[in-house]
Structure formats: C-alpha cells, structure tokens
C-alpha cells in the first residue's frame, strides 16, 4: 500500500528577475529519507527555502504533513527542523544557549528547552564544547550544532542542507548514522540535500534530482538502481576468451568493461545457472557474479546532461 506523501507540491515556480529558479516543480515525497540532488544553481536551496516560507512571491500550492502550503507556513515551521547550508549562528551565545534558544523559539518552555538542548547536544556528540561560544567553533562543530538545533523541538520532518559539509570522515559517518537512526528508529522523514552522492547512496530511500529548476528524476533508490533490462556483472580469473565464446554461442549479449568485468545484459537471476554452466564447460573460474546496478553518478550525470541538451 503506498504511503501518503509528507510533502506534496504542485506547480511551484519561483522567478528571480526573470530567471526561473524553480520551474513548475511538482513533487510527492513519501516518508523516509529522500535525497535532493542537483548541480549548483539547480534550485535545491530555493525549493527548501520556499518550503519554509523564507522565499516569497512564488507560485504553486501544496501540503506539508497535511498542512496547507504556503498558507500555513508558520505551523509547518513548527513541524520541520531545518539545517541550513550556510554557516549561520547567533553571535555571543554558547552552544547550549543557542540550541536552547532555538527550542524556545519553537515553543518549548524555558526549562524544557534547556533540558532538551542538553539531550540534543549529547546526541550530536558536541560534548563539553557546548559551553563554549559558537564563534570559536570549527566548521564541523557548527554542523553538529546546527543539527542539534534542527532536532531540538522534535520535528517529524528534517530538512538537511549539506549536513556533512566540513566533517572529517569519522564525523561524516557518525552524522549519516544519526540520520539513519532518526529515520529508522524514530520515524523521522528526512529531506537530504547534498552534492555528495555516496551519502545519498548510503542513507536515502528515494532520490529527487533537480536541474535548471525542474525535477528531472524522482524515484526510489531501488528502482533507480535497477538497469533497464536485467544485467549481470561477472569477474573471472585468467583468460576470458573461451568463456566469451561460450556466452556468445549461448546467445548472451556480452560487453567487456574497462575494469575487466563482463557485463551480460538480458540475464535475470533465473539465468544465472546458465552462466555457471558455461563457466564450468569452458573451465573458467568465476571470481564474482552479481546483478548489475545503475550507479547514482551515472543517473545524476545523465539527468544533468539531459537538462543541458534537452
């Protein structure tokens, strides 16, 4: 049964002095983690800011968690946690104060806000640094602080704009782990805008690719990974000539890849037995055999190039 969308937009258009930052964007985002991809200037940040009512004078309608957008944008902001891409902070406050302040602005009472701020700074591994002024924080620390601020009012939706920017590999892994935990164990829906494709691949359930203000791709990771026709990737030991001849004789369509692997198209999992049989008959040792998947990089570049050469 399809899940009801958490965000549903229809015909969203935003013009900046004649330039179409968003061009008739219509989207239905389901619960889970959604990757929002696109090259620079594709309209990702404009879409996010429009959702939060930060950008005005746009066309289009929609709903967010059943609330009318943009009519009920104030209530929407109460239910959304936003991690901005920009390096933004309230000068003069300590880490814990700035998280508690955000909690208060989202309606948490003073004491509750402070208690919750301590919980979130611990969850985001900010540690004792939370008592330092945010102006002295490194970029990575500020990312973690912004994440704690986005979470402090326990919103059902999180919009994270480049959350792993400026994090070292360990911290990046930890951040992605937190994102997964929030989605899987706590039922949060997350819109993850990033340039880092491996991040999307590792955590996202669905992907939206924007280019030139339009939605070019919108599907689940599972569907996007599937090749157009069933394909197997095979790596073998030693000479592959005999194996190739055997496959061709059996009617398989085989192409050799740059990394030495063989891509056998038109083969489903049910035909794996035939490939094993040919390998046995040609005395070829198979090192690896797996269903081929489309890479996200390929999908991304295709979508972007289609937008540039429509």
């Amino acid at each position: 049964m399809p899940l009801s969308p958490i965000i549903s937009l229809s015909g969203v258009t935003k013009l900046y002095s004649g330039f179409r930052a968003l061009d008739d964007v219509s989207l239905e985002i389901e619960p889970g983690i959604t990757g929002l991809l696109g090259p620079n200037g594709s309209g990702k940040s404009t879409l996010i800011k429009s959702l939060l009512g930060l950008v005005r004078n746009h066309q289009g309608t929609g709903t967010v968690l059943g609330l009318q957008w943009p009519g009920e944008v104030r209530d929407i902001r109460d239910r959304v946690g936003y991690l901005p891409e920009d390096d933004c902070y309230i000068a003069g406050l300590t880490g814990i104060e700035s998280v508690a302040f955000m909690a208060n602005l989202s309606g948490l009472p003073k004491t509750e806000g402070l208690r919750r701020a301590h919980e979130m700074t611990d969850f985001c591994d900010i540690g004792e640094e939370k008592y330092r002024s945010v102006e002295t924080y490194s970029t990575g620390m500020r990312q973690k602080l912004k994440f704690a601020q986005a979470l402090v009012h326990d919103p059902p939706i999180l919009i994270l704009d480049e959350p792993t920017t400026g994090l070292d590999p360990d911290q990046r892994d930890a951040m992605l782990r937190r994102i997964r935990t929030l989605a899987q164990d706590h039922g949060k829906s997350i819109l993850l805008s990033t340039h880092i494709l491996p991040d999307v691949k590792s955590v996202c359930d669905q992907v939206v690719i924007l280019a030139r203000g339009k939605v070019r791709v919108h599907d689940t990771m599972e569907n996007l990974s599937k090749p157009a026709e069933p394909t197997l990737n095979v790596m073998i030991y030693g000479q592959k000539d005999a194996f190739l001849i055997g496959l061709n004789k059996a009617g398989y369509n085989v192409t050799a890849q740059a990394d030495g692997a063989l891509k056998i198209t038109g083969t489903g999992v049910d035909q794996v037995g035939g490939v094993w049989a040919i390998a046995a008959s040609t005395e070829t040792s198979i090192r690896r055999l797996a269903p081929a998947q489309n890479s996200l990089e390929e999908i991304f570049f295709q979508a972007v190039s289609r937008s540039e050469h429509p």
Binding site: L54, R74, V80, I90, M102, L105, Q149
Partner: peptide, 17 residues
C-alpha cells in the same frame, strides 16, 4: 550581527515573523 552571521536563517526557519 545577525546579518553578518546569517542568524536570520535560524530565526526565520522557526515560527517567527
């Protein structure tokens, strides 16, 4: 200060006009 440190993004992503 809020303009310089872009704190307005934090204020206005909350239910604050």
């Amino acid at each position: 200060y809020d303009l310089r440190s872009k704190a307005y993004l934090q204020y206005f992503s909350r239910p604050l006009s």
